[in-house]
């Protein structure tokens, strides 16, 4: 192998290696050779929980920086040139220089998994607010973590326990005065016989009702009654309809009477007829007076008994004639009768 071929291969090999390193670098770090130092923010917390150096700082889920350092604020004048803070601990954040965080943004420690991976979530502030600069302190909000939730549940358990014991003392009494159950028990025991009697009466009543005895039972159990009731109601309805028709007719009659139509109308509303009737009644009274006094033929007929006596005699004569007729034959009898009569 000659020398130049060897150097070509070595040169190619070396360039290949450099190219691969460059590709790896581009792929893994996005082409930023020196890490973006960005700017520093301080986030004060009373409890940093499991936040540690190197954890991510995310805004809306996108990584915008890392936690550079976590420290205790012992005398509230923290190291590293950080300003005073009222919190027990603070995390120093390294934020990418292109990321703008406004003054009203706030940071919270968020747990991303049950295994204790935490990150610092920064909420975006409003655009109009001024931006935070290097070394500024960012506002923080405390989020309940798993442990505090557990603690809350424990407190809740205690409260529940107290409430239940109160309830149980109300039920069971506190020694001197019997509890609700004991009072109830006493009341039930004292009134047992009455309650029993009432219950048996009630049972009897319901049995009767069930068997169709009595009015209520029949009302409940007899279908005929229902049908009859229904029919009665139907009849009432029909009657009502008829009454309506009748009333309408009566109305018509009254209207006719009012307008003077028909006999009754004439009688009621025609003055002349009324006078005629008055005169007729007067005449009748005259006739009856005369009759009573025995004036005239009819009056004599009614009041004079001589005519009766005459007739009596005539009838006696006729009777005798009929007795004689038994001998002299029917034709003679007829002649005699006729004589006697006229």
């Amino acid at each position: 192998m000659n020398n130049s071929q060897q150097s070509v291969r070595v040169g190619f090999f070396f360039l290949l290696g450099v190219a691969l390193i460059w590709v790896t670098f581009e792929t893994l770090s996005g082409g930023h050779f020196f890490e973006d130092r960005g700017y520093k923010l301080i986030a004060g917390f009373d409890d940093l929980k499991e936040l540690k150096t190197g954890d991510e700082v995310r805004m809306a889920g996108v990584k915008i920086g890392t936690v550079e350092k976590t420290q205790l604020n012992e005398s509230l004048t923290s190291a590293g040139g950080a300003p005073d803070t009222a919190h027990a601990a603070s995390a120093i954040l390294r934020i990418g220089s292109k990321i703008k965080i406004t003054k009203d943004a706030s940071a919270a420690i968020v747990q991303s998994g049950l295994l204790g991976n935490n990150y610092l979530a920064v909420t975006a502030g409003t655009v109009s607010q001024p931006l935070l600069k290097d070394g500024d302190e960012i506002a923080t909000t405390v989020t309940p973590d798993f442990n505090s939730i557990m603690k809350d549940i424990g407190d809740l358990g205690h409260k529940l326990d107290g409430a239940l014991s109160n309830l149980s003392s109300a039920f069971n009494g506190d020694g001197k005065d019997g509890g609700l159950f004991q009072k109830l028990d006493r009341m039930v025991t004292e009134n047992r016989d009455k309650v029993n009697a009432t219950m048996s009466n009630l049972q009897e009543i319901t049995t009767k009702v069930n068997q169709g005895q009595g009015t209520l039972g029949k009302l409940i159990n007899d279908p005929d009654l229902h049908d009859q009731l229904l029919a009665a109601v139907g009849e009432i309805k029909d009657t009502a309809a008829q009454a309506k028709v009748f009333v309408t007719d009566a109305q018509g009659v009254i209207d006719q009477v009012k307008t003077g139509k028909g006999a009754l109308g004439t009688i009621i509303y025609d003055q002349q007829t009324a006078d005629n009737i008055k005169a007729s009644i007067q005449n009748v009274r005259d006739v009856s007076d005369k009759l009573a006094k025995g004036q005239g033929t009819l009056g004599k007929l009614i009041n004079d008994d001589s005519l009766y006596n005459t007739a009596q005699n005539t009838l006696n004569k006729a009777d005798r004639a009929i007795d004689g007729l038994n001998d002299s034959g029917p034709i003679t009898a007829v002649g005699i009768a006729a004589n006697a009569l006229f």
Binding site: F13, F14, L16, G17, V18, L20, I21, T24
Partner: peptide
Amino acid sequence: IVMMPVLTIIANL
């Protein structure tokens, strides 16, 4: 010195 990085990056990839 020149060759080790080349070999290593190839090994990694």
